[in-house]
Simulated scan of single mutants.
Amino acid sequence: MKVLTIITAGVLFFFTSACSSTTGNGSTLLRITGVVQASGITSYQYGTHTLTSEEKSYALKSTNIDLSKYEGETVKISAEKIKGYPVENGPEFLNVQKIERNK
């Protein structure tokens, strides 16, 4: 009986940790697929790029990835929301942590 309890606890822990999408600072990572574009002039004036998915658009920035390398491409990003946004009817503002080209 003890073995079954240990195995069940291990399986639950595995699935819980495998589905977890939080960063080291406790922020939740969003995973979104869409097309990256340079943001240009906007009314909301934040972000260097935009990501347009089927549902909506997002303003993007990244401190560790050159987003310009992905302009015009459909990609999958992992990003965290930046607190205090959206403003003035602008889109959500995301800090991109990881980006993958769609295959």
Score class of each variant (00 low, 15 high):
Ile6Phe: 14
Arg101Cys: 02
Glu71Val: 14
Gln97Phe: 03
Thr50Lys: 14
Pro91Thr: 06
Pro91Asp: 14
Asn102Asp: 06
Thr8Gln: 03
Pro91Glu: 07
Val35Gly: 03
Gly72His: 05
Gln45Phe: 08
Ser57Met: 11
Asn89Glu: 03
Ser27Cys: 14
Val3Met: 15
Gly47Tyr: 02
Thr28Asn: 03
Gln97Arg: 10
Tyr85Thr: 05
Lys2Gly: 07
Ile6Ser: 07
Phe15Ala: 06
Gly84Ala: 12
Ser78Glu: 11
Gly47Ala: 08
Lys69Trp: 02
Gly84Asn: 04
Glu100Trp: 01
Lys83Pro: 02
Phe15Pro: 05
Ser39Asn: 13
Ser78Val: 10
Ser68His: 11
Phe93Cys: 01
Phe14Trp: 15
Ala38Met: 13
Gly34Leu: 08
Lys98Gly: 09
Ser20Trp: 12
Gly84Lys: 13
Val11Met: 11
Gly47Thr: 13
Lys61Cys: 11
Leu67Ser: 01
Val3Thr: 15
Asn102Ile: 10
Glu88Cys: 01
Thr28Gln: 07
Ile77Trp: 04
Thr22Trp: 06
Ser39Trp: 00
Thr42His: 06
Ser68Val: 02
Ala38His: 11
Val75His: 07
Thr42Arg: 09
Leu12Asn: 13
Ala79Glu: 06
Glu54Trp: 00
Thr22Phe: 15
Arg31Lys: 15
Glu92Gly: 00
Tyr46Cys: 06
Gly26Trp: 00
His49Arg: 10
Gly40Asp: 04
Thr50Val: 06
Thr16Pro: 01
Glu73Ala: 02
Lys2Cys: 03
Thr5Asp: 06
Glu100Cys: 00
Ile77Ala: 00
Thr33Glu: 12
Val87Trp: 03
Ile65Gln: 14
Ile6Thr: 15
Gln37Leu: 11
Ser43Phe: 10
Val35Thr: 12
Val75Gly: 01
Gln37Trp: 09
Thr52Gln: 13
Thr16Val: 04
Gly84Val: 14
Thr52Ala: 13
Ser62Tyr: 08
Val11Thr: 09
Glu88Tyr: 04
Ile77His: 01
Glu55Gln: 05
Val11Asn: 07
Val87Gly: 02
Lys2Met: 02
Ile65Glu: 13
